[in-house]
Write a protein that binds this DNA or RNA. Sequence first.
DNA 1: CTTAGATTTCAGTCTTTCCTGAAATTAACG
DNA 2: CGTTAATTTCAGGAAAGACTGAAATCTAAG
Lengths: 177, 177
Amino acid sequence: MTTPLKMTPTIQRCVLHWGEMAGRWGISRSVAQIHAVLFLSPEPLIADDIAGLLGIARSNVSVSLKELQTWDLVSITHVLGDRRDYFQARKDIWDVLTTIMDQRKRREIDPTLQLLRDCAVDAKRDHETPEQIKERLATMLEFLEEMTGWYDQVRNMPRPTLLKLMRMGNRVAKVVS
Amino acid sequence: MTTPLKMTPTIQRCVLHWGEMAGRWGISRSVAQIHAVLFLSPEPLIADDIAGLLGIARSNVSVSLKELQTWDLVSITHVLGDRRDYFQARKDIWDVLTTIMDQRKRREIDPTLQLLRDCAVDAKRDHETPEQIKERLATMLEFLEEMTGWYDQVRNMPRPTLLKLMRMGNRVAKVVS
DNA sequence: CTTAGATTTCAGTCTTTCCTGAAATTAACG
DNA sequence: CGTTAATTTCAGGAAAGACTGAAATCTAAG
């Protein structure tokens, strides 16, 4: 028998808030609440306990945990002599943020980048679309390419470096002046 | 009579793509499609033309335009001797991006920041919640405060400075080493 | 003040997404 | 293998969200 995590008022409040924000974050309420519980829980939890804590169907937990795994926010562990799956969330908040940003870029930006590339190719043989509009698309493509390229560079900088840069705040501006 | 904008295959493709991405971007399809049309159109458009171009109800256009205005992505202009509202989208892609980021921060981050501040206050008189969990919340609060503070600083840097910094890419790292 | 075009509101309907519970599948153990 | 616990799948129902069209409201001009 596991210690499922005691639902104190504070924890409950957070779980409910996560759930309410779910819509804005583009995920379902269950997924958000499960993530809240796992993020806060010091110990990994089993699916049954999560269902119990949140009062949702066991199957729902299963599906939601799958989604959290595709987001790379939750992973499975095991306990010796217990064949049930134990789930744990990334605890490092920096890690959580960058993971979410990576995923969002992949889902929200990359497909549009691809569309714009396709349109740029088509533009050559397209004599219907006004130049002005083609240019706007080209500008957007160029901008997104530059932006994502920059993101990749920053993303790959070692964390201590990034931290130092961030702590400099707008004083980094002096570098370029 | 306005020139409503000719729906060339390229434009149609973009409009459809915007519409398909809508779900991932956290807005409705109509809103996304209307934004696509307005973003591409060299001229401001009236609501009726938008409804016609996209084949959606006039009332839907009205509501969606309101939402685009709350996002600060669309504004109203007028034409002399015509009392209809003409709608135009921000055309500067950099502007569009920062506007969206600002709004998203306001909707997706700020409420959680507030919750964490409230929880931090409560934590003092809360003897039920394990220290470990309170600490995790405190860490998250600290992180978000630092992150948003940094965002505000960068956000207020003049655009040319930001551009230069971006173009330096990961070479800015040398500054701190 | 009246009229007519323009816009918005909103109740009802449609669509999509989410969730449940039963049944099917998987996997460990004897 | 057969048994049993654990997990997943999925059809159907529930909830949430989006869209329509008619009616109400607004606004400019006569």
